[in-house]
Amino acid sequence: MRVVIAPDSLKGTATAADTARAVRSGWLDERPEDEVVTVPMADGGEGTLNAFAAAYPAALRVPVTVTGPDGTPVDTHWLHLPDGRAVVELAATSGLPLLGGALRPGTATSRGFGEAIAAALDAGATGLVLGIGGSASTDGGRPVLEALGLTVDAPGAVDRSGLRPLPTGGVVVLTDVTSPLLGPTGAVAVFGPQKGITPDRAPAFEEQLSGWAASLPGVDPATPGAGAAGGVGFGLLAWGATLAPGARAVADVLGLPALLDGADVVVTGEGRFDEQSAAGKVPSVVRALAAEHAPAARVVLVAGEIEARLDDFDAAASLVVLATQTTGEPDDALRDPLRFAAIAGQRLARLVG
């Protein structure tokens, strides 16, 4: 059989590339004669830069030191593509994992992302591809714009005169969510809890974002994706950027649609498969592409945890369940995810084969 393995990363535990290799290893242990192709995916969050680096072998990683989400320096890099564009990943500059588990809902900042963008522009980037998944903050992207020259006075009046212009090639923002900035499906309500925003503090954060939106009346806070990355999507819209579905854009860059042609089995996955996974995350996009380019293929899922219905998949494997069955310790899936990803590959190959 021809098998295409195209997972996202297991957030905070294993990269997409390592996960794909582990699943492939397990699959081939069971079915060594199969043709197995790996296509590590991303959706604008962690791993987006690596996905572009894989698609453009001549791209250069450019080191940069920026302000991390907790205010301390972070050594990271951005990617200079051969065509002159730059890829900057928010997860690598202002991401939640950079806090090391110490959530800072009131003080975490996205400023480092803006600093990395400024560094890319200083280096002559002709266009920008910005991945904004995995943020640690809920600041509306104001620090990003301040790093790019925006000033805001004490009463909240915005001065755009010093804001850097967009590069000639434009700015495309890759995001995996369609949430607006405000309201019951906005940045605070949906993503605040994972960043440490408790219900009693949520109204104050909502009020801050509402005031920030009011200071930029030319941008509609209800725009789908404005609430991405704690509102960084809104801030970038105010700069003039264009939002795009992240996973589909990465799939196109990697040539995944063509690689799916003739596939018998498609394996996808992510760290946690839940109700949000259907809204443009990697598994839903890979599944849709498989239906279009390999309609006869069986589509299966590998995930750290599975918390949603699996109606659209032919089979699935949860690493937490596998760890529980194997060692009796579900937390082993976090401690050694690649071991259980390989077991998942082996079991799915046995089941599907």
Rank of each mutant, 00 (worst) to 15 (best):
V4T: 15
P7C: 09
D8Q: 06
V23M: 08
V23K: 09
L28F: 00
R31P: 02
P32M: 03
E33V: 15
V37C: 05
G45F: 03
E46P: 01
L49V: 02
A55Q: 02
A55N: 06
V64A: 06
P73S: 08
V74E: 07
D75T: 09
T76V: 14
D83R: 10
L90G: 12
G101F: 08
G101Y: 04
L103K: 13
P105R: 05
F113E: 04
G114M: 11
I117T: 04
I117P: 04
L121T: 10
L121Y: 00
D122Q: 02
T126N: 00
V129A: 02
S135Q: 10
A136E: 02
S137P: 04
G141Y: 08
P143I: 05
E146D: 07
D159F: 05
L163K: 14
P167K: 11
T175H: 11
A189Q: 10
G196Y: 13
R201W: 00
P203K: 07
E207S: 15
A213G: 02
S215K: 04
D220K: 04
G225T: 15
A238I: 11
L243K: 08
L259N: 01
G262C: 04
A263N: 10
G271I: 01
E275Y: 02
A279F: 13
V286F: 02
V286S: 10
E292V: 07
V300Q: 02
D311H: 10
T327W: 12
D332Q: 13
A349L: 12
